[in-house]
């Protein structure tokens, strides 16, 4: 049994640092996600030109690019442990909950880095009306939390399947649709100057519910 101290903040912090270090060694996930985001944005921008007067399309494109660029990498944190046969060792050193929280924090950080590159690039390449920064960043932040919480949990399930990566998009997208719907609707609303309270509540509630469910479920994830 993991002791009480192993699920403490120190264990979470150690897992987060370990994730960052092993990601930084290869930068495989980061490179793939960033290049995917840039390639998709280039393709879209090249195909449709500037969409400055269509905030509805811009909002949808922004989130679709973010979603697909980050999806594969978000499952990667667990797939890496299974493929490297390091999961058992990891489980000996920390409780499932602290592993999960550490990996969730890493995924959040990862998403923030992707967004730091992809969002400005998206705005520059596709254009758009001026942003309402407060609302836009709130939607982006809450959307990222809900996305990371959901994808981390589904990624932990997927890592134990046959043919891991192939199934992840198919299995995670249906449960990510509320996030996508809320985030797109919120981004569109802030461009037209409308309030985004309903969307923020949706995203916050979804993120919180998913996080709560994760904490309940992680103990059941690894048993053999």
């Amino acid at each position: 049994m993991p002791s009480a101290s192993s699920s403490s903040a120190a264990a979470v912090w150690a897992i987060l640092r370990k994730e960052c270090r092993s990601e930084w060694r290869t930068r495989y996930g980061l490179n793939a996600a960033l290049l995917f985001a840039i390639a998709t944005l280039t393709a879209v921008s090249f195909a449709v030109g500037r969409l400055g007067d269509r905030p509805d399309l811009l909002a949808a494109l922004l989130w679709i690019v973010l979603l697909f660029a980050s999806l594969a990498a978000l499952a990667h944190t667990f797939v890496r442990e299974v493929e490297g046969h390091t999961l058992t060792l990891l489980r000996l050193t920390a409780s499932p909950t602290s592993i999960a929280l550490g990996k969730l924090l890493f995924n959040l950080l990862f998403l923030a880095v992707i967004e730091l590159v992809a969002v400005p690039l998206d705005l520059v390449l596709l254009g758009g009306p001026p942003l309402h920064w407060g609302r836009f960043l709130a939607v982006l932040a809450l959307g990222s939390v809900a996305l990371a919480a959901t994808a981390t949990l589904v990624g932990a399930i997927i890592a134990q399947t046959r043919g891991r990566g192939a199934l992840f998009a198919a299995v995670s997208l249906p449960v990510l649709l509320p996030v996508l719907a809320g985030a797109v609707s919120g981004t569109r609303a802030q461009w037209s100057g409308a309030p985004v309270g309903a969307e923020l509540r949706l995203l916050a509630a979804y993120g919180a519910a998913m996080l709560g469910m994760s904490l309940l479920l992680y103990d059941h994830l690894w048993e053999e």
Binding site: T150, I157, V171, P174, V175, P178, Y206, M210, L216
Partner: peptide, 15 residues
């Protein structure tokens, strides 16, 4: 694992 996914779906479906 299927039961765990079902619980994840349980969060998503009401939304």
């Amino acid at each position: 694992l299927a039961a765990i996914y079902s619980c994840v779906a349980f969060v998503a479906v009401p939304f």
